[in-house]
Design a protein around this nucleic acid. Structure first.
Length: 926
RNA sequence: GGGCAUUUAGCUCAGUUGGUUAGAGCGCUACAUUCACAUUGUAGAGGUCAGAGGUUCAAGUCCUCUAAUGCCCACCA
């Protein structure tokens, strides 16, 4: 059976097989177990429209490593999976798909359109889930949640109602970020600013009053019609101007305050007002005020009780208040308005001006600050405890620097616009009474939210039959839906069906087998670690902390691990539009899932961005192949009866050969480090330790050393034990190959899967640093001999006679013990002596306290040899000089710790010995 | 305007609290193919740790400044 193993590891044959096996045996399932410590991660729910990219691959590999590690450590490890309905993104996708049939969503109507979205979700919505399975994610899939599930939606509505009743949700007419393409409001986070190269246009606004002295600084010829020059980057908004503001301290304009301007093109009269917020140094010091199209101007407008003139339709075209420019797109209108102003001599000048503007995070259209009626969450009260939780380190960010980013944002938090003018999402649980709205006086609101009634507005978990105010049954629901993030921020507890204590199985066919959800929530909340990318700290992480503290009265997780962004080899973010995507599924096809996972992890330093090229994945593939072949070799030579031998019982420590003592000590030393690294989120360091240990120590040295005596019982036991434990330690990183090999081991007992085996325990008593350093010295000697052979051009096949002289008795004993191994590895015949006496025809090198001499059959080239020796002697002299200087420095001797001084003294002595030996060799040469 | 990160071998990056001779992968050079593995092995070359100053017995590591690159935040008309 063993000989059938192919020479190369073939991931295709193993991955699907084992994944299916794990799932069929419910190995990913977790349920409350009072005897075990819970460990829970909630997945950052990918968009239901999502397609797996490298960012997902990295994010989910990290989570899987954590989950698999903690599962093996004996904790009840739950990885809660699910997807996000991704309101705007999904709606856009479905709109595109119906556009192929020549349809707009309005043609279908709301209900039909929503039906189409559900159909789409049915058909394509699990793509990302299948892809997560391909990368080996060990999520408890039976629990898979979706933010639009009925039960989840109940949580969302519950939260809305509670916040409204607490006075933390309000409706307001404010300037918000409006995407004219998606035709919806966006939160500030959804409208990131990007730099633009635009212009600053200087417009002349004529004064109504004649005979005033002009603001002469601005190129105005005396005696002409006086005007004020304003500077703007968005001239099309001038049609909505309702004032011009100047700073009260500005001498240039003092006399004009209160005067009237005739707004060009719009032919309206507006006032010049004074406001200390105006920056005298910017532009002309006079600023046009457009309260309906700019957040600053809005504030000014409120303050001065100005008119609000909205000049645009929701789609970004100019509306009826734009007069002649009606129906023009906002950017087209800009050009035409500039032309018209120029014609009238009212465009003074144009200056290039760098600015930044918000862009829709879904379609990248430049957003329009737009006055409209929206729903908001008052954030400051929610932020307060969330700030405390992080300041008091109940929640820790890794790497730490993100704490500052989080706190900075939280301390300056703005109210959150949560209503969206789209169809796909949770519809606001807000109902209006037609009659009340028609009859109510503008200020007739009841302020006491506890009564849950406000005339005309009913916020309710279920649709009310009658208006509680007037009894009318003419009630309709708000058309808007909630921001997608208004459901995601509940993820750590809404996935456990908060606040419901039970779940109706008909609602969710995937509800977890035989567990009562309320227990789940109690058991798994707060969750343990949240793993995510920096770009959603504000969108999601911060908000989850707020909602957790508000509704669960507890933090949602104790650690937040922020990993880097995946970039291409040139440092650009990987994105479809740039065409620089490396598709993880392609990598899996070509190199295997374990290779993908291992390579990704090993090159991702904590919190640093990841620069990827396809070749990077060869490392992982090669490692998998190395593991495969080493395992194959061990399996070919292993006698099954040795597998069950217990190391501690059959071999006392002093019975173990030095080589076996060494490899066991090395394994546990490495394991100790790995535990430390995994505990502090240093996944790359753990991965690289495993790589280095297995390849260079276990394969290159250990297996080579025991090769000639591989049937020895002790060697058999040790080599098997180390392999078996190594596989377990590697399992979280490379779950497939470790399972495949582990299942082939002749374990002589009933086994299920490596993934539910215990994590190896560090055997402190086996760690033996002295043995480790002894072996290291032997390896150096072997390398030295090989090096000398190469210098002498001695073919690898030829056996040479080598003399090693060592004055140190214990070391000489080790050399004698390992004589046979050294002879084999260095291909030599070894003579071990106490003192070195030079004979003619010997090529000698000094390595610490060793003389290593190759006895040559023929003559050696004395001159070349001398030259080499001279170089080494010079180097030694230099080093000695440096050390002597250091030790001669009384400050060093006085101030440095004793150990360091002692060490330096030893080194000096060592160097001096080395020099003496080399000089001896030189002097022995003719 | 504010903040963060990065700068170490030809390339991509590690380097914990300051303390031997600064590491890895890839690439490069030479040699090796009846050997578990050429997706391999052996040996080797390659570094003024961005620059300047400072603290210290001692700096890649701490402090200050400078430069370059990238990212984030901000109500820059």
């Amino acid at each position: 059976m063993i000989d059938e193993l192919s020479k190369q590891y073939n991931p295709k044959e193993t991955e699907d097989k084992w994944y299916k096996f794990w799932e069929e045996n419910d190995l990913f399932c977790a349920k409350p177990n009072p005897k075990k410590k819970p460990f829970c991660i909630v997945i950052p729910p990918p968009n239901v429209t999502g397609i797996l990219h490298m960012g997902h691959a990295l994010n989910n590999t990290i989570q899987d490593i954590l989950i698999r590690y903690h599962r093996m450590k004996g904790e009840e490890a739950l990885w809660m999976p699910g997807t996000d309905h991704a309101g705007i993104a999904t709606q856009n996708v479905v709109e595109k798909s119906i556009a192929k049939e020549g349809l707009k969503r309005q043609d279908l109507g709301r209900d039909k359109f929503i039906e189409r979205v559900w159909q789409w979700r049915q058909q394509y919505g699990s793509t990302i889930i299948h892809q997560l399975k391909k990368i080996g994610a060990s999520c408890d899939w039976q629990r898979t949640r979706f933010t639009m599930d009925d039960e989840y939606s109940k949580s969302v509505l519950e939260v809305f109602v509670r916040l409204y009743e607490a006075g933390l949700i309000y409706q307001g007419n404010r300037i918000i970020n409006w995407c004219p393409r998606c035709q919806t409001a966006l939160s500030d986070e959804e409208a990131p600013h990007h730099d633009l190269q635009g212009n600053l246009y200087y417009l002349r606004y004529p004064l109504k009053e004649q005979g005033l002295s002009p603001a002469s600084t601005y190129g105005q010829a005396k005696g002409t019609v006086p005007y004020v020059v304003v500077a703007t980057t968005r001239p099309e908004t001038m049609l909505g101007d309702t004032a011009v503001a100047v700073n009260p301290k500005d001498k240039r304009y003092k006399h004009l305050i209160g005067k009237t301007i005739v707004l060009p093109l719009a032919h309206r009269e507006i006032k010049i007002i004074s406001d200390s917020a105006v920056d005298m140094k910017f532009g002309t010091g006079a600023v046009k005020i457009t309260p309906a199209h700019d957040p600053n101007d809005y504030a000014t407008g409120k303050k001065h009780d100005l008119e609000f003139v909205n000049v645009m339709y929701p789609d970004g075209r100019m509306n009826e208040f734009a007069g002649d420019y009606k129906d023009m797109d906002r950017f087209e209108a800009r050009e035409v308005i500039l032309e018209d102003l120029k014609e009238k001599g009212l465009l003074e000048k144009v200056e290039p001006h760098a600015l930044s503007a918000g862009h829709c995070y879904r379609c990248h259209t430049i957003i329009e600050p737009y006055l409209s009626k929206q729903w908001f969450v008052k954030m400051a009260p929610l932020a307060k405890p969330a700030i405390e939780a992080v300041k008091k380190e109940r929640i820790k960010f890794h790497p730490k620097r993100w704490t500052k980013v989080y706190l900075n944002w939280m301390e300056n938090i703005q109210d959150w616009c949560i209503s969206r003018q789209i169809w796909w999402g949770h519809r606001l649980p807000v109902y209006y009474c037609k009659k009340c709205l028609e009859t109510k006086a503008p200020e007739s609101k009841i302020k006491d939210r506890k009564s849950k009634i406000e005339q005309g507005i009913i916020v309710s978990r279920i649709k009310p039959e009658k208006c509680p105010w007037c009894g009318s049954s003419d009630i309709y629901q708000d058309e808007d839906v909630l921001d997608t993030w208004f459901s995601s921020w509940l993820w750590p507890f809404a996935t456990f069906y908060w606040p419901a204590g039970t779940v109706s199985t008909e609602v969710n066919a995937f509800s977890s087998k035989g567990t009562v959800p309320k227990e789940d929530l109690n058991y798994f909340y707060p969750t343990s670690v949240l793993v995510t990318a920096p770009e959603i700290i504000f969108f999601w992480v911060a908000r989850m902390i707020m909602s957790g503290l508000e509704f669960m009265k507890d933090i949602p997780f104790s650690d937040v691990y922020i990993h880097g962004t995946v970039r291409d080899i040139e440092g650009k973010k990987m994105s479809k539009s740039l065409g620089n995507i490396i598709d993880p599924l392609e990598i899996i096809k070509e190199y295997g899932t374990d290779a993908l996972r291992f390579s990704l992890i090993s090159i991702t330093a904590q919190g640093q961005d990841v620069y990827l090229s396809k070749e990077r994945f060869e490392q992982g593939r090669n490692f998998a192949n190395k593991i495969w072949n080493a395992s194959r070799y061990i399996l070919m030579n292993l006698e099954p009866e040795n597998v069950q031998v217990d190391l501690c019982v059959f071999f006392k420590k002093e019975d173990l050969s030095i080589v076996n003592r060494w490899i066991l000590s090395r394994f546990y030393s490495v394991l100790k480090e790995i535990n430390k690294d995994l505990g502090s989120f240093k996944f790359n360091e753990a991965a690289n330790l495993l790589y280095g240990f297995f390849w260079h120590e276990f394969c290159d040295w250990y297996l080579e050393l025991i090769k000639s005596d591989i049937k020895n019982k002790q060697n058999q036991v040790v080599m098997y034990k180390v392999l078996e434990k190594f596989l377990r330690t590697l399992q979280p990183f490379m779950p497939f190959i470790t399972e495949e090999v582990w299942q082939k081991l002749p374990q002589g007992r009933q086994v299920t899967s490596i993934m539910v085996e215990p994590w190896p325990h560090v055997q402190e008593q086996v760690i033996d640093k002295k043995t480790e350093s002894k072996l290291l010295a032997i390896f150096e000697a072997i390398t030295q001999i090989r090096n000398m052979r190469a210098e002498l051009d001695i073919p690898l096949q030829a056996t040479v006679k080598v003399k090693i002289a060592c004055g140190n008795k214990p070391k000489r004993e080790v050399l004698k013990q390992l004589c046979v191994d050294i002879e084999k590895l260095a291909k030599c015949e070894l003579i071990i002596e106490e003192d070195y006496r030079h004979s003619q025809g010997e090529f000698v090198n000094v390595l610490k306290d060793l003389h290593i001499a190759i006895v040559l059959a023929g003559a050696i080239d004395v001159d070349t040899y001398k030259e080499k020796l001279k170089q080494k002697i010079d180097k030694a002299n230099q080093d000695i000089k440096a050390k002597a200087n250091l030790l001669g420095n009384s400050n060093f001797v006085k101030n440095a710790p004793v150990e360091i001084v002692e060490k330096e003294k030893e080194k000096l002595a060592e160097l001096e010995g080395l020099l003496k030996k080399m000089q001896g060799i030189r002097d022995g040469l003719k």
